[in-house]
């Protein structure tokens, strides 16, 4: 069974007084377990809308099509239920939450998922071990874990913290929204290593990016080009390189 099956997805963003604005105009995409797909596209193509709609962010309305995750209708579920079912969104702009310690937050998230699965809460010691082991791999300093969620983190630290959360929550489907934005090359490598370590036969990934650079490190099985709310071309990893040399002009022109 496909892990994620998107069929002819149409969605609008609620644009205040201007009313709903169509962003996704018929997207179809299938990710099987073990596959890594990349979605590339110019600014305004609908890349972030796609990840927001899949993860259940308020402010968007699905006007047509379907999103099926592991055989269930994802669009019927609230954002928190999707996450507990195994979906993980690595945010383009991780949110700062003053007053909530990173450790407390992670433990609450893990236990929410365990509770939903009828499992007991994680033992405090097991949690600490798990967190420290993952933090070490990603070069996340101990004092960062004591600080409030994302507060005072640099851009690179925020992205590493996102991958740390991803590793600890063990999702089945990872959505990475512009995870490369704001990263220098060293930080990019650390983050990519963290992501690659999570590649597994039963796990799928959707990597959303504007630039090909990230895909040198997280090598995708399939690359899709998104332009004006539609997937205009799909291919293997060589498509990313082609885009890097030619740019998006061809597709934006075609879509217009």
């Amino acid at each position: 069974m496909a892990l994620l099956d998107i069929k002819d997805l149409h969605a609008t963003v609620d644009d205040g007084d201007a009313g709903p604005k169509p962003i996704l105009k018929g997207i179809s995409l299938t990710i099987n377990p073990g596959e890594v797909h990349a979605v590339m596209g110019p600014n305004g193509a609908g890349k972030s809308t796609l990840s927001n709609v899949i993860s259940g962010r308020p402010g968007y309305t699905v006007t047509g099509g379907s999103v099926t995750y592991d055989g269930v209708d994802l669009l019927e579920m609230e954002a928190d239920a999707r996450a507990r079912a195994g979906l993980f969104l690595a945010f383009q702009y991780p949110v700062e939450i003053p007053g909530v310690a990173t450790g407390t937050f992670l433990k609450t998230a893990i236990n929410a998922r365990r509770k939903a699965n009828g499992e007991p809460e994680i033992e405090a010691l097991d949690f600490l071990k798990l967190m420290k082991a993952n933090a070490k791999k990603l070069g996340v300093a101990d004092d960062m874990l004591k600080r409030p969620v994302n507060v005072g983190f640099s851009g690179g630290e925020k992205k590493r913290a996102e991958v740390l959360q991803m590793a600890m929550l063990e999702p089945r489907l990872c959505l990475l929204d512009e995870t490369d934005s704001g990263l220098d090359i060293d930080a990019l490598k650390v983050v990519a290593d963290g992501v690659n370590a999570l590649r597994a036969p039963d796990r799928g990934m959707l990597v959303i990016t504007h630039y090909q650079r990230l895909l040198d490190y997280i090598v995708p099985d399939v690359v899709h080009v998104l332009a004006d709310g539609r997937i205009v071309k799909s291919g293997d990893k060589s498509l990313a390189l082609e885009l890097e040399s030619k740019g998006y002009a061809e597709f934006t022109g075609a879509a217009a």
Binding site: A79, A83, E96, A109, A112, A116
Partner: peptide, 18 residues
């Protein structure tokens, strides 16, 4: 803050708990 709320929910924390 709606962004904070969504961030917590996107990690599986139920809305009321978030």
């Amino acid at each position: 803050d709606e962004n904070q709320l969504f961030y917590l929910m996107a990690r599986g924390i139920p809305e009321a708990d978030a």
